[in-house]
Design a protein around this nucleic acid. Structure first.
Lengths: 205, 205
DNA sequence: GTCTATAATAAGATAGAC
DNA sequence: GTCTATCTTATTATAGAC
């Protein structure tokens, strides 16, 4: 969707803030209007309904955190460098959008068919890089004995799980381990290193 | 909270079903009443408000998936056996309550102070076993050179992340990799093995 | 395009009979 | 304890002036 006017952009930014914070069900149109410093009628003038506004926000966030990551991967790298770079890029992106992963996971669970379709539209078979491309790369690395024998799907899930969990579980971890400071940039560097070391030691031949 | 009557139990089961499925904001009192095969007035008669009913459900679920797990761990085991058993028990529990982890993570993020207090009440310092106890055990294993040098907090997050992500991301993974069959019990056994192998190879000295 | 005022509906909660 | 009917408030959406 193309953004024409200044107001449209303001609305979308406000809607993103509120939807990411509260989810679709928890978000209120009035709150979005207030955040955008306009009135509620204008929301409907530009986006017709809460549902349409939400879908626009959801699509953009999926693109931000899921799609663009995979299309920026360098599949030519060897496994060591590939994972090092993947983890670093993914963690950076999650750090820049700390609420998006939790939002997407929750909303996909709620969204049923609609959300599923949106996802499928984004990861078309035509994409040069996608989760499936990475699985294929891992499979080949196993065949070439570049890494030990393992199940590519499961490795993929594990790597992404470690990265994503850091942010999805952040509010909970903060309660259980108050000594962890997520906002400290050295924390995120440490997390990258720890994840990569665990992975690489875990998969090297 | 003690459950006295038959009706109270029926309500709580229905409320659990609906809250786990839709979250606090998405759940409707009318739907809970219908699920429990009673009328809406009875919900209020037993639990006074949506908020109180929700808190009761939330507390019980946290206890199911978080608290009871840690109190059933055997801290005497060596690292190899400890992680093998931890992963197996945790995955079994998540498999039995596939929606609970996602529910708790999302609701804690929304709940602010209230949810935080509930968590803190459950993990009192007096508990014999808790996430912190496990971190201490890992720390000691590093000092004893039972496993390689690593950050105990991060290892803890990584292990739990790999287990939890399996279920939290299930709806999304199903879209991207339709060939994965989560309901197949052999899948969960495979997932246990793959996670444990990755961890153990990743941390052994 | 933008606003105020208001309609229309959804949802939590309660009154009062049985 | 349990029900039906209803109140009250919250929330999405629209009408109509400017």
């Amino acid at each position: 969707m193309e953004l024409s006017s200044e107001t449209e952009i303001k609305i979308l930014e406000a809607a993103t803030t509120i939807f990411l914070e509260k989810g679709k069900d928890g978000a209120r149109m009035e709150e979005i209007a207030k955040e955008a410093e306009i009135n509620q009628a204008l929301l409907h003038y530009y986006f017709r309904s809460k549902d349409r506004l939400y879908k626009e926000v959801f699509n953009r966030e999926v693109k931000n955190v899921l799609l663009d990551l995979f299309t920026s991967l360098d599949l030519q790298k060897n496994m060591h460098d590939f994972f090092e770079s993947f983890i670093s890029q993914y963690m950076d992106r999650l750090f820049q959008h700390p609420k998006t992963a939790g939002f997407i996971l929750w909303e996909i669970r709620q969204g049923g068919e609609t959300a599923a379709e949106l996802l499928q539209d984004l990861f078309t078979p035509a994409s040069t890089a996608s989760p499936r491309t990475v699985v294929e790369k891992i499979k080949k690395a196993v065949e070439d004995k570049e890494i030990r024998t393992l199940d590519p799907h499961h490795l993929m899930m594990s790597v992404i799980g470690m990265c994503v969990f850091t942010f999805v579980a952040r509010p909970m971890i903060s309660v259980i381990f108050p000594e962890i400071d997520f906002s400290d940039s050295s924390f995120i560097d440490r997390r990258k290193t720890e994840i990569f070391n665990l992975i690489w030691n875990g998969i090297k031949p």
